[in-house]
């Protein structure tokens, strides 16, 4: 009797299974350079949409290569990358020293390739009529560790701003976005005040700033772009005339020409010398650099210039010739 019920349960499972349908088969013209095999990508969830888009497009060129993308985060991804468990790592920051050493210990040479830019956008609530621009020094005063509990009102930041409390919203401390922002604004990576609303999910930060008149937050440009009517973008002044005078708003143009400083950042993929020896991985990396420019805008990031992509490709080819025996 017992066994019958087990069978009943499994039968439900298998029926579901069968009803889920067979995979779509795609008719492909067989050409001589059709590759097989797999390309394993893991790492940053920020860079994920770009790699997903490239992987999706790559399928139309090389349908038999299985490209998979994971979401372990930059650090979690580097752990797998250094063990040789993945071929490519998405990264929203540079590799750390100990992560690099772990790769070397396993005889893995790696190469960092820039694939896109992002402009970390500083935003306030649309009802906020006093913040028209902000300087890096003022942002630092708001966010540095020493500000905790002491700097709490707008009037403490700039004379003329109201005597009411401000509320800060930003990336959680585990994210590469947090590391980048603190490095650019506070001057030291991973150091900031702790009394702000932190979330790894930028959509939560958008909601927070949109519902709080005294809010100030930062997140990736795509999240501002998709929620323009709920947020007010703040131009940032780095008080350095050399890269554009005055306060500058992030936009595709200003991030691309690097005048939106210091909050423009590059996003990376790391490739592994052992993996690129396989033709399908090599082909995928080249495809990535050729197509990232067109695809990044679609998923909300900002493409680099054609010359910059060409330079990354050159860098990759040099890496191939030094580390991969052909």
């Amino acid at each position: 009797m017992k066994i019958k019920s087990l069978i009943a349960i499994l039968a439900v499972g298998t029926t579901l299974f069968a009803s889920c349908g067979a995979p779509k088969t795609e008719e492909t013209a067989s050409t001589s350079d059709k590759l097989k095999g797999e390309v394993k990508i893991d790492g940053s969830s920020t860079v994920y949409p770009i790699s997903e888009a490239v992987a999706e497009e790559f399928r139309s060129v090389q349908p038999d290569v299985k490209v998979t993308v994971g979401l372990s985060g930059t650090g979690g991804g580097f752990k797998k990358f250094s063990r040789g468990e993945t071929d490519i790592n998405n990264a929203s920051r540079h590799i750390k020293e100990d992560e690099g050493k772990a790769c070397e210990a396993n005889n893995i040479h790696y190469l960092e390739l820039e694939v896109a830019y992002d402009g970390l956008s500083v935003v306030v609530n649309p009802a906020n009529d006093w913040v028209k621009d902000i300087t890096v020094a003022e942002l630092k005063k708001m966010w540095e560790p020493e500000a905790q509990g002491k700097i709490t009102k707008w009037s403490q930041i700039r004379a003329g701003w109201p005597d009411t409390e401000f509320h800060l919203y930003g990336a959680g401390t585990e994210s590469g976005t947090y590391d980048y922002f603190t490095e650019a604004i506070v001057g030291e990576s991973h150091k900031s005040r702790g009394d702000y609303t932190a979330s790894e999910d930028d959509n939560i930060l958008v909601q927070g700033v949109a519902g709080d008149k005294n809010a100030l937050g930062f997140f990736g440009y795509a999240y501002y772009e998709e929620n323009k009517e709920k947020l007010k973008l703040v131009p940032v002044n780095d008080e350095n005339e050399a890269n554009g005078a005055g306060a500058i708003l992030p936009s595709v143009e200003t991030v691309k020409n690097k005048t939106y400083a210091p909050l423009s950042r590059a996003l990376f993929v790391y490739v592994n010398s052992v993996a690129v020896d396989r033709p399908e991985v090599n082909e995928f990396v080249k495809f990535y650099l050729d197509n990232a420019g067109a695809l990044t805008r679609e998923v909300g990031f900002i493409p680099m210039s054609d010359e910059e992509y060409a330079a990354q490709k050159k860098k990759y080819e040099d890496f191939m010739s030094t580390h991969v025996k052909k």
Binding site: P23, S51, E56, K66, V67, T68, V69, G70, L71, K80
Partner: peptide, 25 residues
Amino acid sequence: IVVGALAYVPFVPNSPTSEFTVLPI
């Protein structure tokens, strides 16, 4: 995710040793 489930998987797993993703991810 910790064990190594992926997010972008453009194929239906065909054996128990295949890589995979699940609905919650």
